[in-house]
């Protein structure tokens, strides 16, 4: 069975945006990794502590005006491995 994310525990997320974001934005996104893909998108990835932090991050992204393509929880409970 697929592991479901626990909303109150950290999880590793990937957020895909349309457009390339310069690496200077790393500090703005609290040290998450920014990688620029060849298809013109940016993937923001890293450990996000809980749902509140995830929504805070999405709000920061909204404020850039960059189109949001998808949000995925790639590793629900990295701590409990």
């Amino acid at each position: 069975m697929r592991e479901t994310p626990n909303p109150h525990e950290p999880g590793r997320y990937e957020i895909h945006l349309q457009g390339h974001l310069n690496s200077r934005w790393t500090a703005w996104f609290d040290g998450l990794t920014l990688s620029r893909e060849s298809d013109g998108t940016t993937v923001i990835s890293g450990l996000i502590v809980d749902q509140a932090a995830l929504h805070g991050l999405l709000q920061k992204i909204r404020n850039t005006g960059l189109p949001l393509i998808c949000v995925t929880c790639v590793e629900p409970n990295p701590a409990s491995r």
């Binding site: 200077r24 500090a27 703005w28 404020n63």
Partner: peptide, 17 residues
């Protein structure tokens, strides 16, 4: 303007942390 301010803050954080 909100968008402009955000971009300025990103630069500040990056250039003079």
């Amino acid at each position: 303007h909100h968008l402009f301010a955000d971009v300025l803050r990103v630069r500040l954080l990056d250039e003079r942390p």
